[in-house]
Structures are given as structure tokens and as C-alpha cells.
Design a protein around this nucleic acid. Structure first.
Lengths: 346, 346
DNA sequence: CTGAAAGCGCTTACAG
DNA sequence: CTGAAAGCGCTTACAG
């Protein structure tokens, strides 16, 4: 593979000059510039990014450590991150933690070893050693979706409180009183916040959230299945189950179907995180939708700001409720003033 | 950040010795080994992977260029690739081409500039210049899922012929005769193969695949919607639509629902590529399932074989039919000898 | 505007 | 078993 020396020889100039034209340095003669460009073309030369990184101490690469790629929410987030990064001249390397702290640390370590310029992370738990170390060491970093309290890093996330309030109002208006939640891990901020928001919203209607109606999940389908089975085994099962993410909602659907029960006739279902498939499930699922694309974009901008020496601020965007038919509502067409957003087809 | 020199100073040894213990070189005294290990520990030293790569000319990194991350099939493939690569000591950088040849080339180029050790690609089209160049230049490479005829690179893929035959037999047994397909891009192998397999299977039953029943899609939801609308506008619409991937099936579902039609009563639907949501759609969708995890694993093994100087063989794994209710069948419980696999819950 | 030279942080023959 | 030195492919003050 041709190196910069070959280009210099081909152009009859020094490697210094070649490097200058490659990097768009102003003080190069028009003649030299053309000779270099031609030589590059003839040789099909491509600069070695590894060597350049070693020399300049920057890789123009961002690391993104997410909790679970198979979760459509995170897939979309990753896609949006890559898009925005690319438009800013950065590449991104994705590390999938699969909700495992040890894997999260593995990826953080690997990414740091590769000297990425900055790190975007959606922490799986309260903070693995590697992650905290990176934050303390001053690696440019921003948390996205989930964050770790007490760590001084910008946070880009969405606030689901209003949407959850709208959801509970919707359920209440439909006559539902026994409402349960499949929670995410208590070690994650989103795991806790969604339960808190749900509980507060219930309180506003004079409703309680008794312990048996809080099922501990881990954001994965299997746990949604398990928790839902537990709910169904209760002497007084809930009338509606709210899954704190879309994968646990999938698990809940599995469990309900396995018992031969029907949604929403036998039990209602709602989910945090909206996905295209929810339009076509049986029945279409009512969900809280996050502005995922915007979240990814904002996170990258905040991180690049930090990398390039600018402040890099936290951002919180509102989520919104999308009412469908899984909670027993009459479906699109049935007027219901409590449903802020109505959508039957994508 | 501590460098190897700092470790050497701390341990009272030369950088050469430090490097040797870091790399597990045998000829190092037990004493030196311990002093280095201690110094590394005290300093929290981590080798700079960039410098190491420049020196050794290997990055221990694999590039994976896929057609569309948002497609659950490719998401799962990517996940499996990363898992297998990690177990073999490699990292992977994913490039999402979004079915765009220009983006595919952008990623191939970026990956090559970073000097990845090998490239896994599922080409979006007949072969963009960058891709072909890489293959010609001798970059270790393997095609996964899709491939480019005439390029001498191992191919890891699945063969859907038998499953498509089983699907058509199933449809025929249900009395369906007017069968249409939403095809993938003709520039992709999978786009062509699935149509061919479908046509052959139809022929075996004395059925034809008239042109109006072949809709040209691009593997994305929007095209599935558009093509299905066209089918529905026909004087004699098909009885069943077979979407060549899951995203186009989603689009088909959108179009059918938008017309107020029902599956399977008004029109049947089947898809290539199975996903967990197909169990819960209305109705559950009959699909051809690929052995995605195994495909990812096999692809990585073939690539690493190439990288490490071993042959690296092509692999073809069979896909299988999963019958559900979207084609008008009686549903689970209705015996049907033509359905090789039956599955009602995951 | 151009070039010779140093240096980024490692690894690895080569000597001893 | 250990160390001094060269070199991986670039970039960038420093001189001219």
C-alpha cells in the first residue's frame, strides 16, 4: 500500500509538503498542490489514519456504549448518533453492553485503549469502575438516555413525566383502577424514574401503587414475561400493565397470549418507547414515544462541543403519549379528549 | 496518561522489558515480570492501541458494513458478529449503509483508512468501486447474506429455496393461486434469489408469476407500502403477498390496514426473515426464518481464518418456514402436513 | 513556500 | 534475560 513517501517521490517534493496539501495547509504553492493531488490520484494513496492519530493525538472517533442494541429504541438512537457524527466528521464505534455491567466496562476500556475522542454512554447500572474512571480522568463524555447521579457529565435524555401523567389520565378515564408496572432495573435512572412518574400520576388520581403491582424487570423480554405471569397469578390481577420499555411489553404480550388471554378485554397493556410494530400488534399498543432521533443528535452535539473545548450542555426533551387500542379504548375514531396524540397509521 | 516509559521508570527497567511482559513474551525473569505488573497496577497504565497498531500493522478490529441497521435481521446479525469477534479477541466497527451505495463506499473507505484487519460486508448493490477495490487489493474480506458474483471472496449466507418451496406448497394447499411478491433490489443477490425461488416453486405447482405480480421494492418499509398499494389497485389483486424482507412486510401491513382491509381474510401476507414481533402482529405472520446467529458466527470465523492465513470457506445454511396465520390457515392446532414447522408462541 | 528532522507510543530484531 | 536503537506513517515547529 502506497505511503506518504511514495507520494512525495512521485510528486518530486518532500513528505512535509505532501502532508501540507493533504491537510489543506494554506502556505503551499498552487503548483505543488497540483503535483501532489496528481500523485495521490495516480497512486490511489489514502492516508493511514492510525499513524495520523498517533501523531495528532486525535482519532476523530466517538465511542457509543449502549445498553442493548437489540432494543429498537437503542438501534434508532445509535443510527441517529452515527448520522450526526458523520455530518460532523466523526466516526462512531458502538459497544453493546447487553445490560451487563461487565460488558459495559469491557467496551469502555477497549474504546479508551483505542483513544476515541469522546464517549457517549447509556449506563447499564449505577456506574461500573471503568466508566467512573473515565469520567474522573476527564475523558470528554456525555450520558444519553440514562445517567449516573453525582457524576459531572452532561445528560441528554427525555422526560416522560408528562406523557406518563397523560397515560394514567387516559387509563383512569377508561375506568381502570388497578394499574401495575413492569419496572426497569432500580440501578438505572430510567428504571427508577418511570416507576416514580407512574406512582405520582396515580397519586394525582387518588390511586396507590401497591408492592405486588410493581414487578422487577431488567428491560429485556424474558423479564416482562416472568413479571406478567406473576401479575396474572395474583388473587386480584391488575387491569392494566405498563411495561417500562418495549422489550418487556413484548414479553408481557407473550405471557398473556400463552394463557389464552386477550388484550385489552382480559387485561390492558401500555409501553414506554414506541416502535413501528406497535401499530400492527394485536391490538395496537398504546405507548410513550421518545424523540429518539433528536436525542441522538443532541447527544453528539453536546459531546463534540466538549471535545472541541466548548461547554456542552445537558438537554431534556419531552416524550409524548400515543394512544392506540391496547388499554380498552374504542380505537381511532372514538373521541377522547384525554388522548393528546392519536395515530392509527404511521 | 501514563505511557510505557513511565512504567519502565517506575519498574526500574527498560521499555523493551516492559513491552515484553505486556505481550507475554517468554524470556522475562519472574522478578522483572512482577515489577512491571506492579508498576502497571500502580500507574493504572493501559497500552495505547493506536501506537501498537501502527507498529504491528494490525488493529485486531473487524469492519462490518451492513445494508440497514434498522432492519432487525441485520441488527441481530451485527450482534452475533460482535459476540463471536469478541470471543476471538477482535473488536468490530459497524458501518450502516442504509441501502445506499455511496454510504456503503464511505464506510468501506473509512474502515480501510483505519486499517481494520478484515471486512465483513453485505453489499447494497452490484459492487461499489471502493468495495471492489478492497477485494482486489487483497483485503481479507467475506460477504455475508448478500454477495457479488464474480468477486473471489468467501460467502456466508442462507439458502431459502427449500423454505420458499414449503411456503408455496402451504399457500397452494390453502387454495391460493394468485401469488405476488414484493421483491428486493435486482442489484442484490438476495433480491434476485428470492424472486427466482418463488417463481420456481410456483412453477412446480403449475403456477405463473406474471409481471404485474412482481413489485419492485428496496427492502425498506416505504417500498413495501407503495408496492402493496399497487397490487391492491389491480383489477385482479393477488390473494397472497410475499414480502422479500420483514421491513417491506411492515409496509405491506401499513398499506392493507390503510385501506381498511384485513389479513388474511381480504389478502394473505408472508415474509422473508422472521422476527419476534411477527408472533404478535395482527394476525401473526408466516415467515421464512434465517439462522441469523449462526450466519454471524460463521462469517466471523471465515474472516478470521483469512486474516490469520487459513483458507476461510464459504458457508450456506438452510432457512426454514414458520407457519402462522397470515395466509388464511386455521391457525395453530389445525393440522396441516405441508407446514414443516409450526410455532404459536416463542 | 519548502525541506530536514524530531517525535507520537509502541514492538522487535540485534547484541550482549 | 535485558537494553539500546531503529522504525511503523504520519505532522509540525524550526530554519531557510
Amino acid at each position: 500500500m502506497a505511503g506518504i513517501k511514495d507520494v512525495a517521490a512521485e510528486a518530486g517534493l518532500s513528505v512535509a509538503t505532501v502532508s501540507r496539501v493533504l491537510n489543506g495547509h494554506p502556505s503551499v504553492s498552487e503548483d505543488a498542490r497540483r503535483r501532489v493531488t496528481d500523485a495521490v490520484e495516480r497512486l490511489g494513496y489514502r492516508p493511514n489514519a492510525v499513524a495520523r492519530s498517533l501523531r495528532t493525538d486525535q482519532t476523530r472517533t466517538l465511542g457509543l456504549v449502549i445498553s442493548d442494541v437489540m432494543n429498537p429504541y437503542f438501534t434508532e438512537l445509535a443510527r441517529s448518533v452515527e448520522e450526526e457524527a458523520r455530518s460532523l466528521g466523526y466516526s462512531v464505534i458502538i459497544g453493546n453492553a447487553d445490560e451487563r455491567p461487565d460488558l459495559q466496562d469491557h467496551h469502555v476500556t477497549t474504546l479508551l485503549d483505542r483513544r476515541i475522542d469522546g464517549l457517549l454512554v447509556s449506563p447499564t447500572d449505577g456506574g461500573s469502575p471503568g466508566m467512573l474512571g473515565a469520567a474522573r480522568a476527564g475523558t470528554p463524555m456525555v450520558f444519553v438516555d440514562r445517567w449516573i447521579p453525582g457524576v459531572d457529565v452532561p445528560v441528554v435524555r427525555s422526560d416522560g413525566r408528562a406523557a406518563v401523567r397523560a397515560l394514567v389520565a387516559h387509563l383512569h378515564a377508561l375506568g381502570h383502577r388497578r394499574l401495575a408496572i413492569i419496572a426497569g432495573p432500580a440501578a438505572t435512572t430510567t428504571g427508577r424514574e418511570r416507576v416514580d412518574a407512574f406512582r405520582e400520576a396515580l397519586a394525582a388520581h387518588g390511586l396507590e401503587l401497591p408492592d405486588p403491582y410493581i414487578g422487577q424487570g431488567d428491560f429485556q423480554a424474558g423479564s416482562g414475561r416472568r413479571v406478567t405471569e406473576g401479575f396474572l397469578d395474583l388473587a386480584e390481577p391488575p387491569e392494566v400493565v405498563f411495561a417500562a420499555d418495549n422489550l418487556m411489553a413484548l414479553g408481557a404480550l407473550d405471557a398473556i397470549r400463552a394463557r389464552g388471554l386477550r388484550v385489552p378485554d382480559d387485561i390492558g397493556l401500555a409501553a414506554f418507547d414506541d416502535i413501528p410494530w406497535f401499530v400492527h400488534t394485536d391490538p395496537p399498543v398504546t405507548a410513550v414515544a421518545q424523540p429518539t432521533r433528536e436525542l441522538g443528535r443532541a447527544a453528539v452535539r453536546a459531546l463534540v462541543d466538549r471535545i472541541e473545548g466548548r461547554p456542552g450542555a445537558s438537554v431534556t426533551l419531552p416524550a409524548r403519549l400515543v394512544v392506540r387500542r391496547s388499554c380498552g379504548e374504542g380505537g381511532p375514531g372514538t373521541g377522547n379528549p384525554l388522548s393528546p396524540v392519536r395515530r392509527s397509521t404511521p
